[in-house]
Each structure stands twice: as C-alpha cells, then as structure tokens.
Amino acid sequence: MGRYVVRRLLQMIPVFIGSTFIIFMMMYALPGDPVRALGGERAPDEAQMNALRADLGLDEPILQQYWNYLTGLFQGDFGTQIASRREVIDVISEALPATIRLTLLAFVITAVVGIAMGLIAGLRAGGKTDAGILFFTLLLISVPVFVIGYLYQTYFGVKWGWISPTVRDSEDLGELFLPALALASLSLAYVARLTRTSIVENRRADYMRTARAKGLTKRRAVGVHLLRNSLIPVVTFLGVDIGNLMAGAVVTEGIFNIHGLGRAVFEALKSREGATVVGIVSFIILVYLVVALLVDLLYAVLDPRIRYA
C-alpha cells in the first residue's frame, strides 16, 4: 500500500512534466505577442521591446524558456505576469477560493442529486419515473453547459427572480448555487445514469436475495447492501469528474461573472500571458492527479477485493 502510493506519486512527475510541456508549446504556437500588446495602439519602440524581451527571457530558444520555467516551478516560482508585473502565484491564490467553492458545490450537487436520481430510477426500472429521469438526463447531456447556464440565469435569475442571476460575492454559497447547478448539470446526468445501470445490475444479485432472506428491512437492504456495491463505479467517475468540473468552471464563471480561476485563465489567454495560463492549467492538472490517486485508494475501501501491488 505504502509502496503503491510512492509509485503513483513518482508516476505523477512525468505526467506533470509532459502536460506542462504541451501547454507551454501551445501557448508559444498561438499568434500574438505579449510584449507588443503592452504598447497598446501606439507603435512600440523596437529597441525597448527587445530589451524587455531579453529581460523576461523571451528571446531565448523555446526549449530554454521551458527549462527556465520548469526549474522555477520546482523552486516554487510560478513566474510573473508581463503586463501587471504581478506574481502568477498571487493571481492563482486570489482566484482559487472562488473556483474551489464553485467546484465543490457543483460536486456535492452532482453526487447527491445524481445518485439520488439514479437510485430512484434504478429501483423503479421500467416504470414511468425511470423513463422520466432517463429523458431528463438525456436532455441535460445534450444541451451544452453555456446554453444551460444562460437558461438558468434567464429563468431562475431574471424572469422568476428566485436567485441572484450573477455572483457579486463568491463567498455567498446561496449566490453560487445557480452557477454550481449549471456546472453540475452534465456530470449529474452521467452520475444518475451510471448509478441507475449499476443499481439495476445489482438489484437482482444473489446477495440481495440473501439480504431479503435474512429479514433485513428494505431500507437496510438497499441502503447498505445495494448501495455499497452499486456505488463502486460511480465513485470512480466522481473522482475523475472533479477535474472536469474545474475545467468546466472556465465557462460557468464567465456566464455568472465569478472572479475565479476560469476567468483568470481566460483573461491570461487573451493577453498571451503564457506563464499565467501554464501555471493555472498545471495547477488544475495537479489537482486532477492527486484526486485520481485518492479515488484509487478509496476504491479499496469500497471494494475489499481490490489489492494494491
């Protein structure tokens, strides 16, 4: 077990280097020049620009630039923004709390609502409720998140006025509910379907027949015996999905005006702030890797038949 964790942590290093390299190269391949952009409308002075480039290390070969970035990263230096001269780490830590709150809220909605819907549909497989839930989830899956986001905003926020259509204070979970719901919609639909399938498969299992023969209450048979077995694949999906939710936050934050990582990465992308983009994306990758490891470890708790070697 300990050895397994160490091996998994070591495996993260090449994955991390590889993914940052790809993003770094993509940023370089994009048209546009952050230094030229500093001048705005004015024709910039070539000598001044070259001096600035040399100062920032932008005149060096791309591989050298990547090397510089990576060594900085391992010393805890995420780089500096070109235009604002701010430390990228500050930009991240300022935007992070809002995104984490949004992601976690969306995650809770996904897990609770998704599993509940899947459970209800699975226990009534073939019935009207089941058909209704399947149709509803299909709808959620087919409509892209930016459409759903605007729909929620228009109806719940503006027309019916149930909830604030934009987020003024990202510390207010009430205000974050709508964007979290929009963000959760797709995952929620997948979780509901996955849970349903799993419940239907396990419902007729021999051990469920045993549970009935033991005279357990229905509540116990379903809540302990059926759910414990049915949730194994769902937990795997949920774990991987935390990363997807963070990535999805980019769009959702835009719609609901949340000052989070998504917005920061979007702004950085527009002004070609390579270090900021790579920094934020690397951070998301790191979260993704760590959560994936935690989920794999949790897997053994849920399913004792799994052994780590």
């Binding site: 299992a205 021999d206 051990y207 549970a211 033991k214 015996h225 077995n229």
Partner: peptide, 16 residues
C-alpha cells in the same frame, strides 16, 4: 432461515 447454494455470490462481497 435459508442457506443458498453458492455462498460466494450469496454473501455480500463488500461487507465483512
């Protein structure tokens, strides 16, 4: 009470 044929599938795999 009842005893089933195949104890491996009749017992719940994820509970002690």
């Amino acid at each position: 009470a009842m005893i089933f044929q195949d104890a491996l599938s009749a017992l719940n795999p994820v509970l002690s």
